[in-house]
Design a binder for these strands. Structure first.
Lengths: 249, 249
DNA sequence: CCTTGTGGTTCATTATTTGAACCGTTATTT
DNA sequence: AAATAACGGTTCAAATAATGAACCACAAGG
């Protein structure tokens, strides 16, 4: 792997941690030499992607991404455009709704609107959504060109719960259903007690670039209701794409 | 320079552009070989920091920073904490207010609240603020340890307008005044027609980590009013620091 | 006071990055 | 319509930067 790739993977690793981490620990976790990890960290810090706590000497994610994110969103206001749709869907469905975007080979949550109900599903913003185990991932995967689906399903599929579909053929069946309906449903594939329905957000070229998902506790989620919610999610996803891409060419 | 440093500088360069850019242009601008630039871009794209337009083949800032920014802000909600203070100050002063944060060797705007007035100053979110030529920069610089001020003023100071203080001693005078008052004032040092007052946001250790600035059109900005606004900005900056650092230890 | 851990550094060895020259394609220019 | 210039992208020997074992100095614990 290139040096740059290694450094960016180190940054990814740091981003996944929810607390500061020391040099030795980080070297172990990243399987990099301590000296190498340090050089990477110095470079990353110089550019603001990482910062070191003055007193504990531990490292954490820096502030530079905030600036870059502003610039990105000024030009591609995906979250800003989608937010009203997300909110409306959350109110309509009465459940937590989250928006995800594909980037860097992963689908990750970039916006969440919590359900108003006391008993609701909690979604972490920034969390990575596995393609085969979440409604969002299935919705995204289903509308990808066949070759890319094959590549995604080629490696072993991690098990996240007792209900995770870890067999490629089983996933393919889910994908076929998803394409037919226009939305996916994942029954506790990622987390026990949660059922989700999701629809892809498609570029004008027909390629998925993200997903819109509704997550409900199993207690409230009979299948008729989930299909109803799925249809609403698909409509909202189309609305987002239309508004987002309508303004540009 | 390290390979990583070069790649991150390339990313910075791309972030400064407000439109997509082709490989050859980018190689020229960054003074990198075309093949090298391409390898960097591939690595950056693989991690989502850069994306390539499918049809034009031009490159632009990717979506990965949005995800990292979410994670950073979940742990350090600087913007979220400061936003109400920024808004209140904008209403109180009746002028555009912007918040900046130091990161990666630069002070950059991360939040803006526009004045309600029709004739108002426009500030770009994500813009980099030169230390010697903006009120924010002066406010930040003034409270830095002497050694770091020396280092910042050692290199030649760029001229942005006819009023920019490009002489290190002239800047030092401005910094002394800033420390005494607790806020800085920049009279058209960055942009003709704009006068700003800014106050530093200090960590519990007394080190500046950002600045809060009010920008007014010269037409409305007599000095008595700017001093009044400066005092208000200083109070708001203290409020932000207290709330932001009060919650942690 | 000895052990084990930490963050950080050194420098000969090694592996990666580099860039001139090269494709094939696509806009311009003549 | 031919010629030219510019584009994005690729190749591979030469040059350079990354690597990591061994090394500090220090702190905490036994």
């Amino acid at each position: 792997m290139s040096t740059i790739g290694k450094a960016l993977s180190l940054l990814d690793l740091i981003s996944e941690l929810d607390k500061d981490i020391g040099l030795s620990d980080l070297a172990r976790l990243s399987a990099l030499d301590k000296a190498t990890a340090r050089r990477f960290l110095v470079d990353l810090e110089r550019h603001g992607f990482v910062e070191q706590d003055e007193e504990t000497r531990r490292y954490r994610l820096g502030a530079a991404p905030v600036r870059l994110a502003r610039l990105r969103q000024a030009r591609f206001p995906f979250v800003a455009v989608a937010a009203p749709f997300v909110k409306a869907l959350a109110e309509e469905a009465g459940e937590t709704v989250h928006l995800s975007e594909f980037s860097g080979g992963r689908l990750s949550t970039i916006h969440v609107e919590d359900s108003a109900q006391a008993h609701r599903v909690i979604v972490d913003p920034g969390a990575v959504l596995p393609f085969h185990a979440t409604a969002s991932g299935l919705a995204y995967l289903a509308f990808l060109p066949p070759g890319e689906i094959d590549r995604a399903l080629a490696r072993p599929l991690e098990r996240f719960s007792a209900h995770t579909a870890t067999d490629a053929d089983a996933v393919r069946t889910l994908l076929r259903e998803t394409v037919e309906r226009g939305y996916s449903i994942s029954q506790q594939g990622f987390e026990i007690g949660v059922i989700s329905a999701a629809a892809p957000i498609l570029t004008p070229g027909g390629r998925p670039m993200g997903a819109l998902a509704v997550a409900a506790p199993t207690a409230r989620a009979d299948m008729a209701r989930m299909h109803e919610i799925g249809r609403k999610a698909a409509a909202a996803a189309r609305g987002i794409a239309e508004k987002y891409y309508g303004g540009r060419t």
